[in-house]
Design a protein around this nucleic acid. Structure first.
Lengths: 128, 128
DNA sequence: CCGTGGTACTTTGCAATGGAAAGTACACTT
DNA sequence: AAGTGTACTTTCCATTGCAAAGTACCACGG
């Protein structure tokens, strides 16, 4: 349908599919964690996985929840409060769209780097 | 022995190689443009390729120059001023390091998405 | 029972900065 | 010479990432 086949065109490197809400170090970490854990993660787990401070994670979760990318349910583990975070279907969808653009960036760059290796190489799947 | 490239520590999704200077929509666009054009690009070309406003591009180029990721040389095309931007060797190196982390993000996410496709699929090179 | 400490978050406040608009400089046209 | 256009640069402001402080609740020792 709306396939952004922006291989050519005047704005080839604009990458405007890089959603600002997702394209943020901390939130990208959080979302990637959640995508790989579809059953959800507790606040503390997320905090450790993403190496974030409490306040930091809390804030980003607020943003992600407001954007309807994650759902947050508060419950209890024993008698301690426990916040469980899950990625929503919509969040998953937007994350995948974002990832597609990221892949395009990697591909654009990788091809250029391969054709002029300079002093470093990038492991490229198409290389095998 | 799992993939040695994947970080498996407590902070598996921290992605702290995502350099803040590079991991920014506009600057990522600029650097990707420059990586694919090793001979450099003029201000106006960059502006169009990345779909940025003048002021915006100017600001980001300052940041990139200060970080020694790009070099900026002012000259003339005919008698019009022309700013030529090139990625520096150091910039190239750091960009590649950044890209490697980006690839890791894509891989982390893609494997999770593939194993539970949900409602969307991601075109994966290893899939073909 | 009361205080001390620990866990699990939330709120607040500041400093950084991305981005648009306005500004500067120069060349070409009329 | 004045006006228009190109090529940037500078300024300003709203946003926001981040950390420190705050809140709430439970466990444990005295």
């Amino acid at each position: 349908m709306n396939q952004p086949r922006r291989q050519r065109g005047p704005h080839r490197f604009a990458y405007d599919g890089l959603d600002r809400v997702i394209h943020e170090h901390a939130r990208l970490s959080v979302l990637t964690s959640l995508v790989t854990h579809p059953k959800g993660l507790a606040f503390a787990d997320l905090k450790n996985l993403c190496a974030l401070t409490d306040g930091n994670l809390s804030r980003h979760l607020q943003v992600l929840e407001q954007a309807k990318l994650v759902s947050i349910s508060k419950g209890f583990e024993g008698n301690r409060p426990q916040t469980l975070c899950r990625i929503t279907p919509a969040g998953r969808k937007r994350y995948i769209e974002y990832l597609t653009v990221l892949e395009q960036v990697v591909l654009d760059a990788a091809s250029a780097i391969k054709s002029d290796p300079g002093d470093e190489r990038l492991g490229d799947p198409a290389d095998a």
